[in-house]
């Protein structure tokens, strides 16, 4: 019986999500004029759902102080209070308001993951495109270094570096960004390699264009589609890594509200049948699923595949 009710609620959640995604696409398609509107009209429901979720997360992250009833660090009541009108989702292990921390978590966790991904991307794509454009020994050296760095499992490598440099937000961002930039480098280089052999690059070289112009004006615009999709995938990966590290107590440090460490701090409730600690983990999962849906659609559009 319990299984049936669970299945029923899952079915309800899926259909509500699909309806919301469809509605969001309709709104976008009618609100945006011309070509942009047409793009959204043909988008799958999953992509609409994904975009809607990402938009909601963004709004929550930006408006966090306005939405949250309490501050993220303030102790406002007893420990592990149940859900009620003042404390919507109860309180955590120290008596802080769970809902407020969840809202601030959107800002902290997603913000840090985004900054890290952006940094990894900047580093990886610049070096990757440079290696493709210059070639020769520079390409050889960079590629071999990346090969060796990629032979170490990412989580293990980041744990090693965090031991050495200590655990703070800045080292966390730098360590993960450097490790993930190796993966971006691989993609940027292989995409760049296919572009530098084209005739228009030859023409630009003969015109006497400099390296900067070559990379930014000639290669980058043609490499943007796979790179943007990779950005989404990388974001998911970085987001999960940072959450895992925070969960292990080695990432974002308390008292900053962060979804990974919130799960760990309140995990004891799960054995008593309270699902509150699962909510932050669910927030992580929902955003990752949403980004994956959007990336799937973008890759599909970029490749022009018709399945």
């Amino acid at each position: 019986m319990e299984v049936l009710t669970t299945l029923f609620w899952i079915a309800v959640a899926v259909s509500v999500g699909m309806a919301a995604g469809w509605l969001f696409l309709r709104v976008l398609a009618t609100a945006l004029p011309g070509r942009a509107g047409r793009v959204f009209r043909s988008a799958p429901i999953s992509a609409g759902f994904g975009m809607l979720v990402i938009l909601i997360y963004l709004l929550v992250a930006i408006l966090a102080p306005a939405i949250a009833p309490f501050s993220e660090r303030e102790v406002v009541g007893g420990q592990f209070l149940p859900w009620d009108a003042t404390h919507l989702l109860g309180t955590d292990n120290l008596g802080r308001d769970m809902f407020s921390r969840l809202v601030y978590g959107a800002r902290n966790t997603v913000g840090i993951a985004f900054v890290t991904t952006a940094l990894a991307f900047l580093l990886g794509s610049v070096l990757g495109l440079l290696a493709a454009a210059v070639g020769g020994w520079l390409d050889q050296v960079l590629s071999r270094v990346v090969d060796v760095l990629m032979a170490i499992p990412a989580l293990v490598f980041s744990l090693l570096l965090l031991t050495i440099f200590g655990t703070s937000v800045v080292t966390l961002i730098l360590v993960i960004a450097v490790i993930d930039s190796t993966r971006v480098f691989r993609l940027a280089r292989s995409v760049g390699m296919n572009i530098v052999v084209m005739d228009f690059i030859e023409a630009a070289r003969l015109r006497g264009e400099g390296l900067f112009h070559l990379i930014v004006r000639e290669i980058l615009p043609n490499a943007s589609a796979p790179l943007i999709a990779e950005f989404g995938l990388r974001f998911c990966f970085v987001f999960l890594t940072i959450s895992a590290l925070s969960f292990l107590g080695l990432g974002i440090q308390p008292p900053t509200a962060d979804w990974g460490s919130m799960v760990k701090e309140n995990a004891v409730l799960i054995t008593f049948g309270d699902i509150t600690p699962l909510l932050p983990a669910g927030c992580i999962a929902l955003l990752t699923v949403a980004v994956n849906f959007v990336v799937d659609w973008m890759l599909h559009r970029a490749s022009g595949l018709k399945e």
Binding site: L240, S243, A244, V263, L278, A281, G282, T288, V289
Partner: peptide
């Protein structure tokens, strides 16, 4: 499968604990 790839490991682990360990079927 796509959802399972997107879930953090500890989310999967705690869901399993919630569903299977709480009823005493398996130790958490």
């Amino acid at each position: 499968a796509l959802s399972a790839i997107s879930f953090p490991e500890f989310f999967v682990a705690y869901i399993l604990i919630f569903v299977l360990a709480q009823s005493g079927l398996f130790p958490s």
